[in-house]
Design a protein around this nucleic acid. Structure first.
Length: 172
DNA sequence: CCCTGATTCGC
DNA sequence: GCGAATCAGG
């Protein structure tokens, strides 16, 4: 059964497509005998490729062409057309990794005894540094101390944990 | 791996 | 005109 594209089918196609239905959904809605490729093909032929609510921000990538696996030995003119983009590299800007931690001052050299020794950045990088703020909790500043010594009171509900904690408390 | 639309091209 | 094959991307 291949009713082709009758008026009403095309109408339904347009309607559904403009509604924002996906090609596969439309294909199913139109009934069997039609695939999403057929729908897309028809949509393009109708010239309504663009849509109000494109589920995807359209295409930004170019495809040179389809490299079909040959077909027939019929005088292939072998058109050597290449849209190969020989564009020179726009130079790869080595984007420095975004650092959540702002205070990257204090290097291994300048790091004093009472300075926060929280590592900032990649140790293998020259940009590596330490927090450097006043260390109050151990070797870290207050902020980093919280991160370093996170309370692990998570989980629980189990009697075992509570009981253990209670028993330990005696000997503190 | 599922999905999406896009494109090409033999029919 | 049609749509399968194929693609690129989320």
């Amino acid at each position: 059964m291949t009713p082709g594209w009758t008026e009403d089918r095309v109408g339904a196609l347009k309607k559904l497509w403009l509604e924002g239905q996906s090609a596969s959904q439309i294909a199913k809605a139109l009934g069997g005998g039609v695939t999403r490729n057929a729908v897309i093909g028809k949509v393009h032929r109708l010239g309504l490729s663009g849509r109000a609510a494109p589920s995807q921000p359209a295409r930004a990538t170019f495809r040179p062409s389809r490299p079909r696996p040959a077909a027939q030995p019929t005088q292939a003119p072998s058109a050597p057309r290449r849209i190969e983009s020989a564009q020179p590299r726009p130079a790869a800007p080595t984007v420095p990794a975004p650092m959540p931690d702002l205070p990257g001052t204090a290097t291994v050299m300048t790091l004093g005894a009472h300075m926060c020794k929280w590592p900032i950045g990649d140790p293998s990088s020259t940009e590596f540094s330490f927090c450097g703020r006043r260390a109050s909790e151990g070797v870290y500043c207050v902020e980093h101390a919280r991160v370093a010594y996170q309370p692990q009171v998570r989980k629980g509900g189990k009697d075992g944990a509570a009981e253990l904690a209670r028993s330990l408390r005696r000997y503190i």
